[in-house]
Design a protein around this nucleic acid. Structure first.
Length: 276
DNA sequence: CTCCAGGCTTTAG
DNA sequence: CTAAAGCATGGA
């Protein structure tokens, strides 16, 4: 049983290596991908990308397969910004994922002032210690722990997992979510959601935008991190210094497509397209 | 050694 | 209100 999709607008590599997900590993012809308590094997062969999994409905939504990325890609190239066009051309197979909201909250708290390889290591250690063991495709993996399990573990556990000073943020936010849940967040408008996310310890503007974009499918959000700040100056001739103002600039420029454009730009900058 | 990484909280002015 | 110090960790 497998989902099949045109590989031109669904590249496992482009989709997984653009910084929106931290739980995946090379496997055979492609990757094993883990989300919440599920797993799949995704790979391309010829002009087709295949997803092998036990829950096709979940991963059809997860990989955003209902969305028309040919149209999104065309709109990206129409802006006439060289770096964005490069990202859209060489990252045409990039898709935004619809990920588990709780997993995004904890993952992006860990991501602050951190680098992607280390973020992946911290999350992997947390899952291997606290996640439930499952099997998939002849191997074992661990689920992403519940807020309750995380809250039980406490700050000292996060410290041992390598989270550094973020240990207290994770402890406080996991305790809060274990107590309150996050069901109320899904019905909020995007500005309301952002405001609510900002009340969680360890969640600032950039992290709130990542959670909204990847965990709540709010594609009008545009996270501004150190890479975006750099390309804003180098590739858009920007002069603003305040990240909130840079965020407002890009949100106005890209509107409802902001999240997709952000991913193309982030990917292009990090992969160093245009100089190599 | 310093600088940087998908920044945030706290404190000072 | 804005500006800046402080923060754990590991790789370049």
């Amino acid at each position: 049983m497998a989902i099949e999709y045109d590989a031109k607008y669904f590249s496992p590599r482009d989709t997984l290596e653009c910084g929106q997900i931290f739980r995946f590993a090379p496997y055979r012809e492609g990757y094993k991908v883990f989300s919440a308590d599920r797993a799949c094997y995704v790979y391309s062969r010829g002009n087709t990308t295949y997803i092998e999994c036990d829950d096709e409905e979940y991963f059809y939504d997860f990989f955003d397969l209902a969305r028309d990325y040919e149209a999104i890609n065309a709109r990206a190239r129409a802006f006439g910004v060289p770096l964005l066009s490069l990202g859209a051309e060489r990252g045409a197979g990039l898709r935004l994922l619809n990920q588990n909201a709780e997993e995004m909250i904890f993952s992006f708290i860990i991501s602050q002032n951190n680098n992607i390889p280390r973020i992946k290591g911290i999350i992997e250690r947390i899952c291997s210690e606290l996640g439930e063991e499952r099997t998939f495709s002849g191997g074992r993996y661990r689920t992403f722990p519940s807020a309750h399990r995380l809250a039980e573990a406490g700050a000292d556990f996060f410290k041992r997992a390598g989270a550094g000073y973020r240990d207290a943020y994770l402890a406080e936010t996991s305790a809060r979510i274990a107590d309150e849940g996050i069901a109320d967040l899904f019905g909020l408008s995007t500005p309301e959601l952002r405001g609510s996310l900002l009340t969680y310890k360890g969640v600032g503007p950039k992290v709130a935008d990542c959670i909204s974009l990847f965990g709540f499918a709010r594609r009008e959000c545009f996270p501004v991190d150190t890479w975006i700040e750099k390309l804003y100056h180098a590739d858009f001739g920007g002069t603003l210094k305040d990240r909130n103002k840079i965020n407002a600039y890009f949100c106005k420029l890209f509107g409802d497509d902001a999240g997709y454009m952000q991913q193309y730009l982030f990917y292009a900058k990090r992969e160093n397209f245009g100089r190599g």
